[in-house]
Computed example of a mutant assay.
Amino acid sequence: MIGNGPLGGFRVAGRRVAEIRVSANNVRRILGIGGTPQDINVGLLLDQLSVKYSITYDVLESADMPHRDIEACWDPDSMTMYIRSDVFRKACSNDSRARFTIMHELGHVLLGHRRTINRSRADCQPQIYEDSEWQANQFAAELLMPLDVICSEQLDTATKIEKHFRVSHQAAVRRINQLKKRGELPC
């Protein structure tokens, strides 16, 4: 989903971290991802979502993407996730950034994000937890770097999280900083 709102995405129903965490953990359980999200086979996962849940995806060349400057996007009207071909290939090869991109888009899908036009007073700006992009990023982080595994494996540094979950260093740093700020680490 492409955002141009004040927070980077579109205003959606507010969801807090705990609620998004529950959603991501349920998805891990339902899809059989369990405690090893680093072993997600992206191509197989997308095929499974398509067959079992009618969530389709289309791999397109850059020039054919709905918006040329994006790597992937979710179109709720057609129930289709559009993925740029190079990003899809990288995700299928377990590239950390590409995997996060796909899980981010999956977050839009499973959190029910739809682009809406919101009218609000100028002095009533959306809160961060009402931002579709923040929610999708949080979902991807919860799915790929689950807190229960971080605690059980004692992954108390960004480097440990990066290596264990095979995520980018940037994603691992953001995750550990957020968990520490929220008082969830040490476990």
Rank of each mutant, 00 (worst) to 15 (best):
I2C: 02
I2E: 04
I2H: 05
G3K: 06
G5R: 04
L7R: 10
F10D: 06
R11E: 04
R11Y: 03
A13W: 02
R15N: 04
R15H: 15
R16Q: 05
R16M: 08
R16K: 12
A18K: 15
A18E: 14
E19W: 11
I20Y: 11
I20P: 03
R21S: 07
R21C: 06
V22W: 14
V22R: 15
S23F: 13
N25Y: 11
N26T: 12
N26A: 10
V27F: 07
R29Y: 06
R29N: 12
G34I: 05
G34D: 12
G35K: 00
I40L: 05
L44I: 09
L44G: 08
L44E: 15
L45Q: 04
L45N: 02
L46H: 03
L46W: 03
Q48I: 13
L49A: 09
K52R: 13
K52Y: 11
S54L: 11
D58S: 10
V59I: 09
L60T: 09
L60W: 09
S62W: 03
M65F: 14
M65A: 08
H67S: 05
R68S: 06
D69T: 13
I70T: 11
I70W: 07
C73Y: 08
M79P: 01
M79H: 08
M79D: 13
M79Y: 13
T80R: 01
T80H: 00
M81R: 01
M81P: 00
Y82K: 00
I83C: 05
D86P: 05
V87I: 01
V87D: 01
C92Q: 03
C92H: 00
S96K: 03
S96Q: 05
R99V: 00
F100S: 07
M103W: 06
E105S: 10
L106A: 13
L110N: 01
L111Q: 04
L111H: 02
L111E: 02
H113C: 08
H113Q: 12
R114E: 08
I117W: 10
I117E: 15
N118A: 09
S120G: 15
D123S: 14
Q125N: 14
P126V: 12
I128S: 11
E133M: 07
E133I: 04
Q135K: 13
A136V: 02
Q138G: 06
F139D: 01
F139E: 01
A140Y: 01
A141G: 07
M145T: 14
M145W: 00
P146R: 03
D148K: 12
I150P: 03
C151P: 04
D156K: 09
D156A: 08
T157N: 09
T157G: 06
A158Q: 08
A158S: 07
K160D: 11
I161E: 07
I161Y: 00
I161V: 15
E162Y: 06
K163M: 10
H164W: 12
H164S: 04
A171S: 12
A172K: 02
A172N: 02
R175D: 07
I176S: 05
N177D: 14
Q178N: 14
L179K: 01
L185D: 15
